[in-house]
Nucleic acid binder design. Sequence first.
DNA 1: GTGTAGACTGTGGTCGACA
DNA 2: TTGTCGACCACAGTCTACA
Lengths: 78, 78
Amino acid sequence: MTNRDDRLFLEQVGFRIRERRLELKMTQAGLAEVADLHRTFIGSVERGERNVALLSLRRIARALRVPVANLLGEPPNT
Amino acid sequence: MTNRDDRLFLEQVGFRIRERRLELKMTQAGLAEVADLHRTFIGSVERGERNVALLSLRRIARALRVPVANLLGEPPNT
DNA sequence: GTGTAGACTGTGGTCGACA
DNA sequence: TTGTCGACCACAGTCTACA
């Protein structure tokens, strides 16, 4: 558990967060402050090292002004 | 932290999980087995008592054969 | 500006038992 | 069949410090 597939998924989520953050020209520290999370934690999430909890992901999504779903990289649906 | 808004969000996610589970005529124990999570944990998630982690939410979504985004109850976007 | 490392606290998640 | 109640362990998330 935390097999290859899981890691890949978390890495993709992390990558989308980073992409969006850079799009907004924010730093990790800046995002951390808006999301009310710690800077080092944001960094490890972006690297796909953390199995982030739903409420934290939502805080990040809000700080990036996108729906949580946009960070998941799933096919749009139903 | 775990303010009213957060609780409401988790409750909505929980409700969507329960809705979908009943649609598939599964029991909590049945869902738990397919998702490889514990029965009591599924129950508490459905009640919105748990800030479920992303990988666990994904396991649940897969067991319910829906994208994770479908459980979030967000407006479709971008 | 970011990654890493370590120590720490709270809670995600397991499990068994009983209503 | 589901909710609840502990007891328990792993890890989410904080924080400081240094490259």
